[in-house]
Amino acid sequence: MRSLKNQVTLLVMGIIALVTMIVILVFYLQARPILLMNTETEAKRDIAAAEAIIDLKHPGPWHTRGGILYKGQAEVNNNYFLVDYIKELTGASCSIYLNNVCVSTTEIDGDCYIRAVDQSVPKEVRSKVLEAGQIYLGQAEVEGRVSQAAYKPIINDDGQVIGVLYIGTRSSLYNSIIYGSMKTIGIAGLILAVLIALITRYFVDRKLVKSKPLREVDAEIWRSPKQELVHNSIKDNDFDMLDTLLDWQQELPKGLNPLTLKEILLFLLENDGDEVTVKDVSKSMSLSTVTVRRYLDYMEECGLVDVEQEYGSVGRPLKLYKLKG
């Protein structure tokens, strides 16, 4: 079973870890729409720039002839110079499709290290762009990678959709920002959890020391360096006697203090083998003789001391106290 301070430490670390996870989740939910909006804005800008570059380099309408896509008089099929030029200026990947099949692209087939032509338009794009003739902005899977993309229909002079122009945005910058921020928050939360847990453990230790039962505190005091020589001379069975007395603390008569009782017992242990009087104890410990007599009488009742009486010529007999052997 874990100690109280370990339980409190783990509880504090758990709470801070939970709060950190909530902060990260809230940050992600708040930042993700901003990320998507920025990448969509960039995709719109890049696809507009791509169209302008194509019109500038190859004026004229889009059309097909013999299963080949043309822009003006320029053949687009396998025209990698055109798509590479667009990527160089915009930084975005570019692909051109004839109907549903890619005929020119900057994408590389990872298995063959050649241009990934003959690929189909992603299924999530097909109905909106090829069939409805609308622009698609959103995430799409291209060559096994999901990226923020823009797909715009290629329309000929007759208003027919004959292909698709694709731009894949550079979302890595935004991803690095958002995920980098989440990582930073997580690390900061971990460091904060450790620091607060250590501080909490320190204060819990102090609190536990302050709230220790009197018998535990006194035991530590008794074993201080000042008493080292005394304790070195005390036998093990004497400590057994002391432990027995400690167990009786809760049964002390009214008006008796456990600490004072143990101090008197220590005095008797220091004088092991010698008989002492009430005045001896009173003088050594700066206590009244009445007080000392009450404690010694109690110890006599508990069977901890032997008492002998020494008779003088006049007056009451003098009591001599000695620890039982």
Rank of each mutant, 00 (worst) to 15 (best):
A140P: 08
Y113I: 07
V23A: 00
Q7V: 04
T260K: 12
L266K: 14
F203T: 09
L35P: 01
K57N: 09
Y298V: 00
T289G: 02
R145V: 13
M241W: 02
P153Y: 03
K262T: 05
R115Q: 07
A197L: 05
L137W: 05
P61C: 01
I234L: 05
Y166E: 09
I16W: 06
E131P: 00
I154T: 02
N77L: 01
D158T: 08
T39H: 07
Q148P: 08
N156P: 01
D205G: 07
L18S: 04
I34T: 11
S171E: 08
D280P: 02
L98R: 11
G168P: 04
G315N: 13
M1L: 13
S282T: 03
C102R: 04
P258I: 09
F27E: 07
T9P: 03
P225V: 03
G91T: 09
I22P: 00
I155Q: 04
L165D: 06
G186C: 01
W62H: 06
Y70K: 05
R201Q: 01
L165H: 07
D236F: 06
Y321W: 10
R223G: 11
I154F: 04
V307K: 09
Y166K: 12
S313R: 07
Y85D: 11
S288I: 12
L137E: 00
Y113F: 14
K57A: 09
Q139D: 14
Q249K: 08
V83Y: 05
V290W: 12
T39E: 14
K71G: 00
L195N: 10
E251K: 15
I154L: 08
V230W: 13
Q7S: 04
W248D: 14
K183G: 13
P213R: 14
K183P: 02
P61D: 13
E270Y: 11
V76S: 05
Y28R: 03
L165C: 01
W62T: 01
N79I: 10
L18H: 02
S288Q: 15
D274Q: 12
A17T: 06
L18I: 00
V164P: 00
G303W: 05
G303F: 00
K254F: 13
I68T: 11
E220M: 08
S93Y: 10
S286D: 13
Y80F: 15
N237C: 04
L18K: 06
